[in-house]
């Protein structure tokens, strides 16, 4: 069934986020403007990963590759070629889709963990390429002078302008996730995530649907990468390094796989908690990872995936061992 409404958990998180953005715009807090923009950009990339991981059940490390295409694409198109920044946001996404199709077609034929392994190699390769291909990427110093977005000649270079743009793009990404997760495509994704053989027997084109998920993830990754470059006005290899990969997975897992607003909550956690722990000095990372461990132990389905069903009486025992065959039909 296609539910039109969103759940109370998603509504709470998204409502809180909206309040935070408005309050930040009203108070003009520089720290919160910066933090919320970063949260939005992380969340956009993570919504893409959530389509792959949370809906289609595919472990993909390719998200930083798509971010790299977006970031470096935007930098080269605008800083080097002088094109309008909007082209820098849109055009690299087509490149990311092309790469998604090129890697998806051969890799999705692999069974088991091979897809994950292959995309992990791709992510490491992308990072090495960013460092090594100096002519293309500027090497480890990167590319500086990426201009911000502008509407009708009016620069969105102010932190407030960029905050608004990034949250509008995030809202679009969430809308795409919302509509797809409740469509026949979303249902087919969830079916193939757990039982590919059953999905195939029902005529669900598993390979094509996996490719579709990767394409959606690629667009979101690329757009997030472009925004990141335009936000920080430069790109360097460390925005697509191993730490970013880990952060994206943390964001999706902390928020709750497959949950609409999970990436928003997860991105807030990943962006804000280390900062909030900075008074601990050297112990900051230790405490952060202990917090993460506790999280995984006690909320394995993410902050939004907590189970309240034990509050309600269970209708019946859910275990149903196959009973012994009874004799004769008549």
């Amino acid at each position: 069934m296609i539910r039109r409404t969103i759940g109370i958990r998603d509504a709470s998180v998204l409502g809180a986020a909206l309040v935070a953005v408005i309050a930040t715009l009203l108070t003009g807090s520089a720290y919160w403007t910066y933090a919320l923009t970063l949260i939005a950009i992380y969340a956009i990339a993570a919504v893409g990963l959530n389509v792959m991981l949370g809906l289609a059940g595919q472990v993909s490390f390719a998200q930083t590759t798509f971010m790299g295409i977006g970031g470096y694409g935007a930098a080269r198109l605008t800083a080097t070629l002088g094109w309008d920044p909007w082209w820098g946001l849109v055009l690299p996404a087509f490149g990311a889709v092309a790469v998604a199709v090129l890697i998806g077609l051969p890799l999705f034929r692999l069974r088991g963990h091979y897809f994950a392994m292959a995309t992990f190699a791709l992510a490491l390769g992308t990072n090495s390429l960013a460092v090594g291909a100096v002519l293309l990427t500027g090497g480890s110093t990167g590319i500086a002078g990426v201009p911000p977005l502008a509407i009708a000649g009016l620069s969105l270079g102010t932190p407030q302008g960029f905050l608004i743009v990034s949250w509008i793009v995030l809202a679009l990404a969430l809308a795409v996730f919302f509509v797809l997760s409740r469509s026949h495509i979303g249902r087919a994704w969830r079916a193939l995530a757990t039982s590919p053989d059953v999905a195939v027997s029902l005529g669900v084109p598993v390979l094509r649907l996996k490719l579709l998920a990767l394409i959606v993830a690629a667009v979101m990754g690329s757009v997030a990468g472009s925004l990141y470059a335009q936000f920080s006005s430069f790109v360097a290899p460390d925005f697509i390094n191993l730490v970013m990969i880990i952060n994206l997975f943390l964001i999706v897992f902390i928020g709750g796989r497959g949950m609409l607003s999970g990436p928003v909550l997860g991105a807030a956690f990943v962006a804000l908690i280390p900062q909030a722990l900075s008074f601990l000095g050297e112990w900051q990372n230790v405490v952060f990872f202990v917090l993460l461990l506790l999280f995984m132990l006690f909320l394995p389905r993410g902050a939004l995936g907590f189970d309240l069903s034990w509050l309600r009486p269970r209708p019946r025992d859910s275990s149903h061992p196959v009973p012994e065959r009874t004799e004769a039909a008549r």
Partner: peptide
């Protein structure tokens, strides 16, 4: 072979 995490209705819809 129930589709895990999906309702009876969703199973038929798939």
């Amino acid at each position: 072979t129930p589709l895990q995490g999906m309702t009876v209705r969703e199973n038929v819809e798939v």
